[in-house]
């Protein structure tokens, strides 16, 4: 493992890491689809305050992740390959609010945040390919407009 880590080309991860990432992704996709967190109806009922399902999933997910991170930090855990585990904080800027609202609107319309878009496609919901196409268009528009969008303050 150590040697492959060193032999891998700059930028790329060792092949083993990609396989492990693929497996973790598969677990996520499985759970998103099986718990209906990738179902439009569940997301709509969340925004309508008609059921607690999604709030409970997200809330418990945050709690479990938080406790896990506290334990990892306490143990000074390192990742496979020996690098220390460190969260890279996402900075505050105006986009956190404006972009956040824009994303929320899209989430409510499509019933899918980015993870569930992929889970829907895998589940054979081919119309989600349109959601993905829209998301890539949105990403490219952001790339073009970024120099003119407000960030500071």
């Amino acid at each position: 493992m150590e040697t492959t880590e060193k032999e891998s080309k700059p930028g790329y991860l060792p092949i083993g890491a990609y396989i492990r990432i693929l497996l973790v992704g598969a677990i996520l996709g499985l759970v998103l689809a099986k718990s209906e967190a990738a179902s439009w109806d569940r997301v709509h009922k969340m925004f309508r305050f008609e059921e607690a399902h999604m709030y409970l999933i997200i809330g418990l997910g945050i709690a479990v992740a938080m406790i896990s991170m506290l334990i990892l930090k306490k143990l000074h855990a390192v990742s496979i390959g020996g690098k220390p585990i460190a969260y890279k904080p996402k900075p505050y800027h105006k986009g956190v609010i404006i972009g956040g609202m824009i994303f929320g609107a899209g989430w409510a319309i499509t019933g899918a945040c980015p993870g569930p878009i992929y889970a829907q496609i895998g589940g054979g919901e081919w119309y989600a390919l349109i959601t993905l196409a829209g998301a890539l268009l949105g990403m490219y528009s952001f790339a073009l407009l970024k120099p003119r969008l407000p960030f500071r303050g």
Partner: peptide, 28 residues
């Protein structure tokens, strides 16, 4: 779906993350 997807792509990139990166990993 196309318009909503556009908002998801634009908004998540402008905000710097989505439900996973901000809501779960970030808050945790």
């Amino acid at each position: 779906l196309l318009i909503g997807g556009f908002l998801v792509g634009f908004g998540t990139r402008y905000a710097g993350g989505c439900t996973s990166g901000h809501a779960i990993n970030g808050i945790a």
